[in-house]
Computed example of a mutant assay.
Amino acid sequence: MGVVENIKDWLANEASPEERAAIEERLNPEGGLLAAINGVPITGPQMRAAIGAITHIQVRTPADALEHARILRQFASERGFTPPEYAGPALHARAVAMDRWCRLHDRHGQTDVDAFFEAAATHPLRQTDQGMAFDPEAFADHIRILAEMPF
């Protein structure tokens, strides 16, 4: 019997209802994966540091994207982000959304950098046909509001 079969057997025959409920909650968070990712608290400086940790790897292949994910999981773990099971994926989803938004809406890099990272850390992601992304107009407004703040 393989590992997966052993786990299924344990869940079906030996795990208590409390153990099964705890596993179910971790695997299927309330509100789904998008809600769990949006629920990870991240600051602008943390987002900037996370991006700094992956900029040395240009994504050209799926393996490069997986390496970004690995690095960001490690980054989140080393810095104590919570919840730990969603922190790395949250940073990665936000990094991808940032890249997508820049390629489509700020090709010349004219956005206020501090406001961009703060917005990227806090603006809600939404599910699209291309994966998780920021609503382009709402995200641009968020950046503008942050850039206009006097501090």
Rank of each mutant, 00 (worst) to 15 (best):
D141F: 08
E30Y: 06
E5V: 06
E19T: 04
E25L: 01
C102L: 14
H142Y: 08
Q58A: 15
A76Y: 04
T128H: 04
N28Y: 05
M98V: 11
A15L: 10
H68A: 15
R60W: 06
R20I: 11
H68C: 13
P83L: 03
G39C: 13
D135G: 03
V113P: 07
A93D: 05
N38R: 04
P45S: 08
E78D: 11
D114K: 03
Y86W: 01
A119I: 00
G39K: 04
R100H: 14
A121Y: 05
P29R: 04
E30A: 10
H142N: 01
A36R: 02
E78Y: 00
D114A: 07
V4E: 14
P136N: 01
F139E: 00
A50T: 10
P89Q: 02
W10S: 05
V96M: 08
V59T: 11
E85T: 07
H108V: 05
E14Q: 15
H92T: 09
G39V: 06
A95I: 01
I37M: 15
I42L: 15
E78L: 08
P89L: 02
P89A: 02
I23L: 10
R144K: 07
G109C: 14
L11I: 10
R126E: 10
I23M: 10
I23R: 03
E78P: 01
P17K: 14
E24F: 04
G52L: 07
A22E: 14
A69E: 02
M1N: 09
Q46G: 04
P84M: 01
P84A: 11
A87C: 05
P83I: 05
A90Y: 03
L33P: 08
